[in-house]
């Protein structure tokens, strides 16, 4: 389990390096998918199966579909992958930076726990699952604010993308 979790943590960092090293948006979205999937693994390994499920469903299922769609709209004819010259230089620089930072921290690392023991407390529902119930019962104000923000975002998006006839010439 320790090896698997270490692999997941390294995968998170590598995925973010793949996003940050400025490839074409196609490949950056792929890196983000890798990071999000690995993040699900990390959360599940720490015992947060419900939070992991939310991340998987909402983040991967909802957001990245939208991003893939926009990447298809706003793409360039010759996308630059990680094999491209500038991208590979950035990747090397970032990886070196991560390794150096990790080496600086090496002495100070102590072993956190990787896996939560399932029998720490005899609970009927797990902590993260009951958190959702908590949001609906006691966290009413926060829920109302979040719902208001989602409604507000709807208006924001509608207002920002208005103006079909305005603007300069365009192909679409």
């Amino acid at each position: 389990m320790t090896y698997l979790m270490s692999l997941f943590l390294i995968g998170l960092i590598v995925g973010m390096v793949a996003v940050a090293s400025n490839p074409a948006p196609y490949f950056a979205a792929l890196g983000l998918v890798v990071s999000a999937g690995v993040g699900c693994g990390i959360l599940a390994g720490h015992g947060g199966s419900f939070l992991s499920l939310i991340l998987f469903l909402i983040y991967l299922g909802g957001m990245l579909v939208v991003f893939a769609y926009s990447a298809a709209l706003a793409a360039e004819p010759y996308p630059e992958a990680w094999g491209g010259w500038s991208v590979i230089v950035y990747m090397l620089v970032y990886m070196t930076g991560v390794v150096v930072a990790g080496a600086c921290m090496w002495g100070g690392w102590y072993e956190g726990f990787w896996v939560m023991e399932s029998f720490k407390e005899f609970m009927v529902v797990r902590g993260d699952t009951s958190g959702a119930a908590f949001m609906y019962s006691f966290g009413g104000g926060m829920l109302v604010i979040s719902a208001w923000v989602l409604l507000l975002t709807l208006f924001v998006v509608l207002e920002l993308t208005r103006g079909l006839s305005r603007g300069t010439l365009r192909a679409v």
Binding site: H46, G48, D128, F134, M135
Partner: peptide
Amino acid sequence: SLWTLQLETTCYSTAPMLLLAF
């Protein structure tokens, strides 16, 4: 989420969901 999972604080496990909504 890892913070709430490590401390096992139930009330804070709503925080990642709110963060995701925002």
